[in-house]
């Protein structure tokens, strides 16, 4: 299913226990766009991602994904909700007891139930080739480096050809070269597959490299939504200070 606005979020409120983290967030992401969600630590970036991706139930508000409203009436989102999305978790989140090939094949076993084993193996090899991990099918996650684990996680997120990809801190814990390679890979995938991406990060280099638009969160609110160049000039002081501090930090390091 295609849509010009694959993701729409309206009035999203969410939190943990009695602590409210998101305080009425609105967000619209256009097709084929890479949207960066950024903000200081604890501002609710990851909470927003988890609530939008159906991993946690919001307190209030609507999440409309590919024209379908996220429904929590049965306590969990319906299985179809996850059919068109892929999630790249911060540490890759590969199932440690399965090989890389089995990890990448897992969503295919669920979503394309009648796929013959040979075709499944071929698709797994193709997805691993796409992220530069050919030949790693039989390795266990523990045998991979941090960057390779993220690539494998990305291959698994892309396995069932999702229309929307969520990435939680893809550059976290990676050296600058590996981080840059991962950014290039995301751009390449966006351009070749026309996947819409929502990326949570606060790495300025990554933001500069891949962002089409940015959404800046502060204390559970969206305080800026626009392109990066505008953020440096026409945005609240907090956003400008954040970007300036990050830029100084990057220069120094």
């Amino acid at each position: 299913m295609t849509s010009s606005t694959p993701l729409r979020v309206q009035g999203l409120r969410a939190g943990y226990g009695e602590q409210q983290v998101l305080n009425g967030v609105d967000l619209e992401v256009a097709k084929g766009e890479i949207r960066i969600v950024l903000g200081s630590s604890g501002c609710g970036k990851s909470t927003l991602l988890k609530n939008v991706a159906g991993l946690e139930q919001p307190w209030a508000g609507d999440v409309v994904l590919l024209e379908k409203k996220l429904d929590w009436s049965e306590g969990v989102p319906p299985g179809e909700f996850f059919e068109n999305i892929g999630i790249l978790f911060q540490g890759g989140a590969l199932i440690s007891s399965l090989t890389v090939g089995e990890n990448v094949g897992l969503p295919l076993r669920i979503r394309q139930r009648n796929m013959p084993s040979a075709a499944l193996r071929e698709k797994v090899r193709f997805k691993l080739r796409q992220v530069g991990l050919e030949g790693a099918e039989d390795k266990l996650p523990g045998e991979l480096s941090g960057g390779m684990r993220k690539r494998a996680g990305l291959a698994r997120a892309l396995a069932a050809d999702p229309e929307l990809l969520f990435c939680d801190e893809p550059s976290a814990g990676l050296d600058p070269v590996t981080s840059r390679e991962l950014d290039d890979l995301l751009l390449e995938l966006r351009d070749s597959l026309r996947i819409t991406m929502v990326v949570v990060t606060h790495e300025l280099e990554s933001i500069r490299a891949i962002a089409d638009r940015i959404t800046f969160l502060s204390k559970g609110h969206v305080i800026f939504d626009g392109i990066l160049n505008d953020a440096a000039r026409n945005s609240p002081q907090e956003v400008q200070d954040f970007l300036a501090r990050r830029a100084t930090f990057h220069k120094e390091s």
């Binding site: 991706a53 969990v76 996850f82 999305i85 978790f89 989140a93 199932i95 440690s96 969503p107």
Partner: peptide, 18 residues
């Protein structure tokens, strides 16, 4: 518990696996 901490259980949910 280690799977929960390392988000492997969340990854299962994201693949529509109970």
């Amino acid at each position: 518990a280690t799977m929960v901490v390392q988000e492997e259980v969340a990854a299962l949910r994201s693949m529509a696996i109970n």
